[in-house]
Design a protein around this nucleic acid. Structure first.
Lengths: 334, 334
DNA sequence: TTGTAGGCGTTATCAG
DNA sequence: CTGATAACGCCTACAA
């Protein structure tokens, strides 16, 4: 069996209280001698305190839950890395939970995490409103922050990059390049980010006196395949357009593929824009013009805010980050 | 405060033992009536058992540690997903640990995981031999499996895809396409996978009576940038070659970029191969011919084997998976 | 069928 | 400066 505080107390001829003191560096109340002796024995016996036992009394596990749709989506690894790095700095570990945008799975994970007494949750939720899972979190009084996806419950802390103004800006950029017939491939409209970005598209169009053509707007699911299919559908309409704005890079890459197969040149025949700036955008031909999200920073921020709120230190409730336009090769001036 | 077993015992006018019985479904020994009553009260009070307390007595946390270099490397998300999905099926959660191939970080994580009493570890280690961390795991008697990277300690379970024969096969493919002067961009030679793959390269060359030219061999670090730089170095040598084999896709993509900037056509002027089949390879121009690793399956397998070994069920000690050649557009017959 | 009591490895509260 | 002792929430013999 593993060596416990008792073993080392016995070995040192002191009480477990004293040992506990030196473990926790409560320096007042332990003579240097006994402290050194204990330290030495701990090392010799290769003692490691049992966090489980500790957690039972302190009510702290120094573990965070990270709930997100799918680590396999290239948007998330950076974000996860930000969370993990920051958590690590503060002495926390993270439990990774993939939900596949499934509400029931989210719920199950939340329950398990609660049972495991994690100290807080970083929650990238699918659901935009009437979110029962968020209510559960609230009821259980589990500290949490919403990440990337908003929620329409007040008082819930969240971190996100402003998708509305981001998409607005990229559409403006197209318009400045004299594009007027701009197709749009949206994300799933059950998703708050997708809605936000679509709003940005509409605002930019309206502001320029352009009216979006329903035939040029398709709803995808943020995956590459879906970008391909939406592009293909739009092409079938045989309507004239000079640019497609996609709600994320993955779909833009799919669209690129479809256009290539259809014999169209990007950006000569059609301009294409993405959103997110995942690393593929910089590697595909032509390189994608897109909006860069501060993904890693968002992860860091989320972790930091959560940890602060666990420690009941003051912290911001809402952090809106600005995405940044990255101009590459997929848009032509006409 | 959260509701405990005591609360519901009091509410139901039974002992906590009885409550504990129904929680754990020990059906013998509880009348249907009291069971129903208790179940009902548990639901009403929204009771969730405290795993921390439970773990303290059962010595099981149903949590696994997953130690890997960097989730941001596109090779890993699929693997992680496999691990998580499988763990989930068996009722386990995973704690994600990014080490950046830093031995000290690995060590720290192992210690923390041990303190948290995780039930086992899936370990993708950098170190190929004399691995002190593995020895530590052995000493602590923590169940673990090595994933993707081998280790030269006997009796340690590991799962990997055979890099030697994989690279052998892809080089063979180049040779069959009449390439004879084949450059090679290797991974970091401190890394077992890199060594394996290089062995495969050498074997295929030797077997065909070809002698590798030192000037055409560079050691990179598996990152895209490094592929670019190695390619650039090789080009500077002004030696004749018709193909480059890269030890992973990321470097191959970097090489592609470098070749394009240098005005060379792939595959017309130079053929390029990758390794791993991460999704970019299918999206880059030209699409990369590469070896597909069964990444997701490896993750699943690792989790399953680990969990079996925790349950002390029989399990395989060593699983070698075969990668699969994926022929796309980056190799020309000459 | 049910309950009592001890213990898991720590921390925390008091006394000495 | 040090040490009993009681929690923490749950499981598990052993009794009744």
């Amino acid at each position: 069996m593993a060596v416990t505080i008792k073993d080392i107390a016995r070995e040192a001829n002191v009480s477990i209280t004293t040992v506990s003191r030196v473990i926790n560096n409560k320096n007042e109340g332990v003579s240097k001698e006994t402290k050194d002796k204990i330290l030495q024995i701990m090392k010799r016996l290769n003692y490691r305190p049992n966090s489980v036992a500790r957690s039972l009394v302190t009510k702290k596990t120094h573990t965070l839950g990270l709930i997100l749709p799918d680590i396999t989506n290239p948007f998330f690894p950076d974000l996860v890395r930000g969370v993990e790095d920051t958590a690590n700095i503060y002495g926390y570990n993270i439990i990774l939970c993939n939900t596949d945008d499934d509400i029931a799975k989210e719920k199950t994970y939340i329950k398990v995490l609660k049972e495991k007494c994690i100290d807080g949750i970083i929650y990238t939720s699918t659901i935009k409103s009437e979110n029962q899972n968020v209510k559960m979190l609230l009821k259980y009084e589990i500290p949490f922050v919403m990440l990337d996806r908003l929620i329409d419950i007040k008082g819930v802390p969240y971190i996100y990059a402003d998708g509305e103004s981001g998409m607005y800006e990229i559409i403006r950029y197209l318009i400045e390049n004299n594009h007027r017939r701009i197709a749009y491939i949206s994300g799933p409209m059950t998703n708050h980010t997708a809605i936000q970005r679509f709003e940005g598209y509409k605002r930019a169009m309206a502001e320029a006196g352009l009216s979006p053509d329903g035939d040029l707007i398709m709803e995808g699911n943020y995956k590459m395949r879906s970008g391909y299919e939406c592009m293909s559908e739009i092409l079938k309409k045989k309507k004239k357009f000079t640019a497609v704005a996609c709600a994320n890079d993955l779909m833009a890459v799919g669209a690129l593929e479809c256009l290539r197969e259809s014999g169209m040149k990007v950006p000569d025949d059609i301009s294409v824009t993405g959103y997110d700036d995942i690393y593929v955008s910089n590697v595909v031909t032509p390189k994608l013009t897109t909006m860069a999200q501060p993904t890693y920073e968002m992860g860091c921020l989320a972790a930091r805010i959560l940890i602060k709120s666990i420690a009941e230190e003051n912290h911001e409730k809402e952090v809106k980050l600005r995405p940044k336009l990255v101009i590459r090769e997929s848009v032509a001036k006409i």
